[in-house]
Design a protein around this nucleic acid. Structure first.
Length: 277
DNA sequence: CCTCATTCCTGCGGGC
DNA sequence: TGCCCGCAGGAATGAG
C-alpha cells in the first residue's frame, strides 16, 4: 500500500522517465479515476495535451507533475494505484484507467488502479503547489518541516498517538504500516493519548518516523503483493525490514514476545505487548 | 474548531 | 465446488 516511501519511489521513477517529454494524447477509460477533476475528462485532456512535463514533486502521499503551462497533473495512488512506464506494445493492464502518449513516441505513462481509491486531476496554476493539497501538512522529510511545531501540535491533540500519526493535516505521508513500525521502534503503544506523551517521547517517535521512512525509500518501498510496484513494475524490498506490521504471532525482534494484532480505527494494528507501553 | 465514524472499491482467502 | 463474508485501507465527508 503506497505510503510516503512508495510514492517517493514512483516519483523518482517518473523523474527519470517522463520529465522533459511532451504529452501528445491522453485517454481516460474510467471516469472515477479523474473524479477530483470536476470539469471532466475532456477538460482534463485539453489541459495536458501539447504540454511538457517539467519536473516531479511530492508532498506526503500526493505527487504532482508540473507542466510548462504552469498547471500540474496532481495524483494520489490511494490503495492500489500504479503509475507505469510501458511501451505502447505492452499488453494493456486489466485496471488501466488513464493512458498518456508522448510526442516522442516513446514509452507511455499508464495509471492502473484496481480499487480506484486513487486518481489524477489537473491543478490550474498548481505547478508550484497544487491548491488541491494545500490542506495537507508538510511531510517529515521536507526541508521546511519543523520538529518542534509537530511535537507541540501532537501534544495538543486529544486523541490516540497512532491516530495523530495518520492525520495528514498534522504530518503527511505516514500510513498504517509505517505508523506501526515507528511506534514499535519508539516503544510506544499506538492507543496512548497523544497529550500524555512527554516532549522527549514525542521527539523520539518523530526520529523513528523519519528513520523508517528513509530506510524504506532506500529499499524501494514495501510490497506485500502486486499492488505496489515502481514505474517499471518492480517490487520494493522493505517488507524484510518490518518488525511489527503484518507479523502477528511472530516473535518481537527485540524481546521475543509474540506480536499482537488488534483492531484500531477500523484497521489492524500490530505491536509488541511487552515492550510497547 | 475538533473528533470520529462512514463511505468509496475489488480481489482474495477462509468457512461452511 | 461455490457462495458469502470479512478484510485490506487513504482521504473526503458529514454528524455531533
Amino acid at each position: 500500500m503506497p505510503e510516503l516511501p512508495e510514492v517517493e519511489t514512483v516519483r523518482a521513477g517518473l523523474e527519470k522517465w517522463v520529465v522533459g517529454r511532451t504529452i501528445s494524447a491522453v485517454e481516460i477509460s474510467h471516469p472515477r479515476s479523474i473524479r477530483r477533476h470536476i470539469a471532466g475528462a475532456k477538460d482534463f485532456a485539453q489541459l495536458v495535451v501539447g504540454r511538457t512535463i517539467t519536473s516531479t514533486r511530492r508532498r506526503g502521499k500526493f505527487l504532482w507533475l508540473p507542466l510548462d503551462s504552469g498547471d500540474a497533473i496532481v495524483g494520489h495512488l490511494g490503495m492500489s494505484g500504479q503509475l507505469l512506464v510501458q511501451s505502447a506494445t505492452a499488453p494493456v493492464e486489466k485496471h488501466m484507467h488513464i493512458r498518456f502518449d508522448f510526442a516522442d513516441k516513446g514509452p507511455q505513462l499508464r495509471f492502473v488502479d484496481q480499487r480506484t481509491f486513487g486518481g489524477l486531476a489537473v491543478s490550474i496554476g498548481g505547478a508550484e503547489l497544487p491548491k488541491e493539497i494545500e490542506h495537507i501538512g508538510l511531510d517529515p522529510l521536507e526541508e521546511s518541516f519543523v520538529d518542534k511545531d509537530f511535537i507541540a501540535a501532537l501534544r495538543k491533540k486529544r486523541t490516540a498517538v497512532k491516530r495523530a500519526l495518520l492525520d495528514q493535516k498534522l504530518i503527511s505521508g505516514v500510513g498504517n504500516i509505517y505508523a506501526d513500525e515507528a511506534l514499535w521502534r519508539a516503544r510506544i503503544r499506538g492507543d496512548r493519548p497523544s497529550d500524555e506523551l512527554s516532549r522527549q517521547a514525542a521527539q523520539r517517535l518523530l526520529g523513528h518516523v523519519k528513520d523508517v521512512l528513509r530506510e524504506a525509500i532506500r529499499q524501494g518501498g514495501t510490497s506485500f503483493d502486486a499492488l505496489y510496484v515502481n514505474v517499471n513494475g518492480e517490487s520494493g524490498y522493505f517488507d524484510r525490514g518490518l518488525s511489527a506490521y503484518g507479523r502477528e504471532g511472530e516473535p518481537c525482534p527485540r524481546c521475543g514476545t509474540p506480536i499482537k494484532r488488534s483492531a484500531f480505527m477500523n484497521r489492524s494494528s500490530f505491536f509488541c505487548p511487552r515492550c510497547q507501553r
